[in-house]
Computed example of a mutant assay.
Amino acid sequence: MSLVKAKLANLLARRRFGGRGLHPHALANLEALEGLDPALPIDACRFVVLDLETTGLDPEKDRVVSVGAVRLVEGRVRLGESFRELVNPGRDIPAVAVKVHGITPDKIAGARHGAQVFEDFLGFLGRDILVAHYANFDLHFINRVMLGRYGFSLQNLVLDTVLMCQAVVLASDPYGINRHQKACRLEALAKRFGIAAPERHTALGDALITAMIFQRMLARLEAVGGTRLKDLMRVAQVK
């Protein structure tokens, strides 16, 4: 979706939901696209890089168990501005998922439920541009909460580092063979850019790895003349 269409959809959402006594963070989210101009220099944009750990890979059946995010401003990761919280999924955590992220039922027994955690995350996110690896997966979980709690989906511009990888890192694949698809996995990109991954499969650890990968790919985009938000949207925007 182009930014023009997104802003039009946002205008309709504001007219429909703006007067419903929403939580302040949700109300503020309706203003997320205000002031966002495709001609902005990328260095003038603010980003929040997100990762979720879940009970599994089925977006319909599974639930979130951990949220992690870091902020990136003027091309730099602000380690002092991060979001990290365990989430009570309201269901069991399969053993196969525990083996991946190490989050056991006892660790989330006293944690808050997703709707409460995501409400606070909205406050952390503000109007910043959201960035994630395989962003549609994370966005599905966020929007399930947003739609159920507020009636509208997340209004922020969303970028996907996988799409960006395909556009600025990999060789052209004009026939759609996708033979390089595995090269866009988080581990492969971290290795390509020499990024250590000591906290792999923790939400905050993966968010930090994604943020550093995003930094490297922004540099590649800039090297070929992509210095404006519109250039970044062209290669990474979630449609």
Rank of each mutant, 00 (worst) to 15 (best):
K7H: 05
L8D: 09
L8Q: 15
L8T: 14
N10R: 14
L12E: 12
R14S: 02
R16D: 13
F17V: 07
F17G: 07
G18W: 10
G18K: 04
G18E: 08
R20V: 00
L22Y: 06
P24N: 12
P24G: 04
H25C: 08
H25M: 05
A26R: 00
A26P: 03
A26V: 01
L27W: 08
G35K: 11
L40F: 09
L40N: 07
C45A: 07
R46K: 14
R46F: 09
V48Y: 03
L50N: 03
L50F: 02
D51K: 09
L52M: 06
E53C: 01
L57C: 03
D58Q: 12
E60A: 13
K61I: 12
K61L: 11
V67M: 08
V70F: 11
R71E: 13
R71P: 07
R71W: 00
L72F: 01
E74W: 08
G75F: 13
R76A: 09
L79P: 04
G80L: 05
S82R: 15
R84E: 15
V87K: 01
G90T: 00
G90L: 08
G90E: 05
D92Y: 08
D92C: 09
I93G: 07
K99Q: 15
I103P: 03
D106G: 05
D106N: 11
G110H: 03
H113R: 14
G114F: 04
F118S: 12
E119P: 00
G123H: 02
G123Y: 07
F124R: 12
R127I: 00
I129Q: 13
L130E: 06
H133K: 04
H133M: 03
Y134L: 05
F137P: 12
L139Q: 11
L139F: 09
I142T: 06
I142N: 03
N143L: 05
N143V: 10
L147I: 12
G148D: 06
F152C: 04
S153M: 09
L154G: 01
N156E: 00
L159V: 15
V162W: 07
A167F: 01
V168W: 04
V169P: 07
V169L: 12
P174A: 06
Y175R: 13
G176C: 07
I177R: 15
I177T: 14
N178K: 12
N178F: 05
R179G: 13
Q181K: 15
Q181E: 03
A183D: 14
C184D: 11
C184I: 13
R185P: 01
L186Q: 14
A190I: 07
F193G: 03
F193V: 10
F193C: 02
I195F: 05
I195M: 11
A197S: 14
P198K: 10
P198A: 03
E199K: 15
E199T: 12
E199F: 14
A203T: 07
A203K: 00
D206S: 08
L208W: 02
I209S: 09
I213E: 03
F214H: 10
A219G: 06
L221A: 08
L221G: 08
E222R: 15
V224K: 13
G226M: 11
T227P: 02
L229K: 03
L232C: 10
R234Q: 13
R234C: 04
R234L: 05
R234N: 08
V235Q: 10
A236F: 12
Q237W: 06
K239Y: 08
K239H: 10
K239M: 03
K239S: 13
K239C: 01
K239P: 14
